[in-house]
């Protein structure tokens, strides 16, 4: 049962992220973890972890796809620019860390939101 909830959270959040990313600003992808953190009955920790994982998978998948179609030149240049000494791995790790924290915070916020609504009742 829990596994199904996890799956719904992950797939739903990724689907919403996919839709939002192409219609609005980049940060709109936080809607998915907020919504599923809110509607699914999960602990704060679970919501945080699933929120982080969903956006990690979303960005990670896109990185893998774009890396194939654009070549690696741009990764290296951005890695020098930030500056991460030209390390593509460091660039990916930093990117995923950022999106992981963002997704986690979004999931957590959804979860807290649900809790406060329940308490209001």
């Amino acid at each position: 049962m829990k596994f199904t909830k996890y799956l719904i959270f992950l797939l739903g959040a990724i689907l919403i992220a996919f839709l939002c990313a192409y219609i609005g600003p980049w940060w709109l992808i936080v809607l998915g973890p907020i919504i599923f953190g809110f509607i699914l009955k999960l602990s704060h920790t679970e919501s945080f972890m699933l929120g982080a994982l969903s956006l990690l998978l979303f960005w990670g998948g896109l990185f893998a796809y774009e890396a194939g179609s654009t070549g690696s030149l741009i990764f290296e240049k951005i890695a020098y620019l930030l500056p991460l000494k030209g390390s593509k791995s460091a660039l990916i790790i930093v990117s995923l860390a950022i999106i992981g924290i963002l997704g986690g915070l979004a999931g957590l916020n959804g979860s807290y939101w649900k809790r406060s609504m329940q308490l209001s009742k």
Partner: peptide, 21 residues
């Protein structure tokens, strides 16, 4: 702006002129 720049859907990877093929 790191989020905007690093986002694979809005950032540096979306420049249509960096295609390899």
């Amino acid at each position: 702006p790191l989020g905007k720049l690093l986002s694979p859907t809005h950032g540096y990877l979306q420049d249509p002129e960096i295609i390899d093929d």
